[in-house]
């Protein structure tokens, strides 16, 4: 469907096989994207081929094939969790904004993450930026710094739960 999904298809494996496999799965995602955009038509084949090939090539250049296993069921669970969380987040902000008392206790919370710096931590930070009341605002060594609307919320626990779900889904190595 889109970039992040393309990346998630990286499969366990070493060397050429893995990169071929990940190229194929990314190409499949880009083909899906094309079909959604342009629809299926025989006339489109040259354009679709060029688009998919270029996109796959670029994607492989920009993002090396990953090496971790993923589990479809965990991904689904992650997606649902994520969807639920983003609704809760929106409701949370709406509640605070519309509350006459403006219940805010903003501040920073440092979350010690187990994910290594780089792609995985980026994915985690991006997902958690849609969590209720948190926006990642920087990194320090092994910690992610979150800005919170309400520092009294159990932010760390929620983040822990999210990280576990993410690790189960994508980085199960």
């Amino acid at each position: 469907m889109r970039g992040p999904s393309g990346k998630r298809d990286a499969h366990t494996g070493v060397g050429v096989g893995a990169s071929w496999r990940s190229a194929a799965s990314r190409a499949a995602w880009f083909l899906c994207l094309w079909l959604v955009l342009a629809g299926a038509s025989l006339d489109d084949i040259p354009a679709a081929t060029i688009a998919v090939a270029t996109a796959t090539w670029t994607s492989l250049r920009l993002l090396e094939p990953g090496t971790s296993r993923r589990s479809p069921r965990a991904i689904l669970r992650l997606a649902l969790l994520f969807l639920y969380q983003s609704i809760v987040a929106g409701v949370d902000v709406a509640r605070r904004a519309l509350d006459p008392g403006l219940p805010l206790r903003p501040g920073f919370v440092a979350y010690p993450t187990r994910l290594p710096r780089g792609l995985r931590r980026n994915v985690f930070a991006t997902l958690t930026s849609l969590l209720p009341g948190t926006v990642p605002a920087g990194e320090e060594e092994a910690q992610l710094l979150y800005h919170c609307l309400d520092v009294d919320q159990p932010v760390i626990a929620e983040l822990d739960q999210e990280e576990a779900a993410l690790a189960r889904a994508l980085y199960n190595d």
Partner: peptide, 9 residues
């Protein structure tokens, strides 16, 4: 973009 906050691990 994060360059300053963390150096290489």
């Amino acid at each position: 973009d994060g360059t300053a906050s963390t150096e290489d691990e």
